[in-house]
Design a protein around this nucleic acid. Sequence first.
DNA 1: CAAAAAGTTCAATTTAAAATGAACTTTTTG
DNA 2: CAAAAAGTTCATTTTAAATTGAACTTTTTG
Lengths: 165, 165
Amino acid sequence: MSLPAQDSDQLPEWRIAMIDLFVSGALLVGLPKSVGQIYGYLYSAQDPTPMDQIIAELGISKGSASQGLKFLRQLGAVKVQFILGDRRDHFIAEVKSKKLMGGFIREKLSPALEDGVDRIAHIRTLLTYDGLIKEPRHRDQVVKLETWQKKMKLALPIIQKLFGE
Amino acid sequence: MSLPAQDSDQLPEWRIAMIDLFVSGALLVGLPKSVGQIYGYLYSAQDPTPMDQIIAELGISKGSASQGLKFLRQLGAVKVQFILGDRRDHFIAEVKSKKLMGGFIREKLSPALEDGVDRIAHIRTLLTYDGLIKEPRHRDQVVKLETWQKKMKLALPIIQKLFGE
DNA sequence: CAAAAAGTTCAATTTAAAATGAACTTTTTG
DNA sequence: CAAAAAGTTCATTTTAAATTGAACTTTTTG
């Protein structure tokens, strides 16, 4: 004899479709599937949700859930909501495109660009004698890299703005 | 007794550094390492280069080289140059940022966006009865997805323009 | 303050994607 | 037109990245 099982029905089709959409998006920008699943789950959720429920409904491991939520919090794509009388953290999706894009730029794109700056500087030193690059062809190659970089640096805040409120 | 080996010295350090830079870039945007290597090799090359030389100097397989070059041509990031008296194709890197960004948008981003359009349309049908979504919460969720989509669609040509001549 | 619950970490495993290379097709040329 | 060279394809192997889950730390509460 058992009490009725907690309402852990399957997710409805529309939620599965939404989650799949976010999984595709995550994979497109180089994020793990589990991150897309978790965000999609929370985006489509009615209420703030604790980790154990996310684990149960998505069928992922504790480890993936913990790491995925950690990453999403860093990004600012997920927030913790305090629920009175429950000591578990409850998570909700941040849906403002400004915040999402901002987080992605800050955590992923900007660091990659910075790394690029350093690498190009290093290439420059490898080609430099007496303070300048002698070979015109090499000078052109490096300058073109730097031009790319500048365009990227310029583009980020503009993209940012495009997604602002 | 042997003739002096063809000039297949190691690549100079600066070329290796440039190739590595493009490998990082490729991986960042979800392209295979080999594609970054090939493009970086051609970007840093003095002359149009046939596939067998790329294979020899990068130490990659025929298969990777063939597929990588095919992809880069589709993108418009690599062009074939006819060399008189040599039946092999010779490849050169296209370096105009407009063309590169354009190719990437056309081959990668736009198709992903189109796929997203279809998926959201499908989610809409899943939530629709009598021609409309009854639940306000669901309506909001779908509308927000569509807003994202529109911003993306708007953003692509703007990004494109940022990288134009 | 002991036991349970919540959450994190990380070595080991699994999985998905990329790379390989042998077989194949196409093109060239003597 | 036969043989060689160039290039493609794709089944198998390798590799890198994500996921798992057991052990651990931290927090809560009776």
